[in-house]
Amino acid sequence: MNRLRTILYSLNDGLCNLKHGGVTGVVSILTIAFSMLNLGLFLLLWINISPLLKGWMEEVKVLGYLKEGICESRIENLSGELAKMAHVEKVRFVSKSEALERFKETLGEDRSLLEGIEDNPLPASFELVMDDTSGIDALEDAAKRLKAMNEFDDVQSGREWVHRLYAFFLLIKIVGFLVGGVLVFVSIFIISNTVRLTLINRREEIEIMRLVGADRWFISVPFLMEGIINGFLGGAISLGLLYLLYHVLRCKLNLYLLSAIGMLRLSFVPYSAFFLLIVLGMGIGGLGSLFSLKF
């Protein structure tokens, strides 16, 4: 009960410290806000880009072009065999005539170019759509197995494209973690120095408290609270800034541009991210204080 009371008093003291914190206090709040804003932007980017990337990934297929003269019963058997392969979500047979139709559609107004051709030169093929859990290995594995079959003349797996997509994914993750990590470290450092400066400024007061019987807990908790409150304010400011940025982007980004890359609208971060940004901000503030208090 005593400890609980001390925490409540310390919360009040922490708020008082904040009022007297001046420039150093504002700097630490803004540093946390900036770090959390970086994390928020990363989340915003991720939330909007990941469905897009997922869609692109679905476009990645293994294509197996069949040799001429494969009988229909064998094609049916092959369809069953391919469907049983690991990570294969969908198997689609594209007949020679269907391939030609597609090609004509692709040519659009230039389809008249094909008018002089009597025999259909396009091979029949199998399209293998991989599932969500499949990676590059699964894709290559499926392509290898197709190549090993006598019925296939040529196999394309779109490996290069997938490689680039994965590299892009990885780059976003690494950059996000690096920048986020550096900013978190900088925030902790600045908070700890802010508290250290406050400790120096209030050395006399702390000494008096010690001499009249205050223990380490009684003296330290208000400083810890100050850090946590700084973190809370920084987190809240970052959320506000993030929403402002989102709003500006939503208004300014051309709808045609968005639809061209397959994005119908911009989404904001979920409520759980609000909680994450604020709690993480409080954690950084608290850690900064703890480091300077040398527990």
């Binding site: 010690r210 001499l211 019987g213 205050a214 223990d215 380490r216």
Partner: peptide, 15 residues
């Protein structure tokens, strides 16, 4: 040092 507060709470000091 960490236990001094217990003693000091029992000693009133006028500096």
């Amino acid at each position: 040092e960490s236990n001094l507060h217990r003693l000091r709470r029992q000693v009133g000091v006028v500096f």
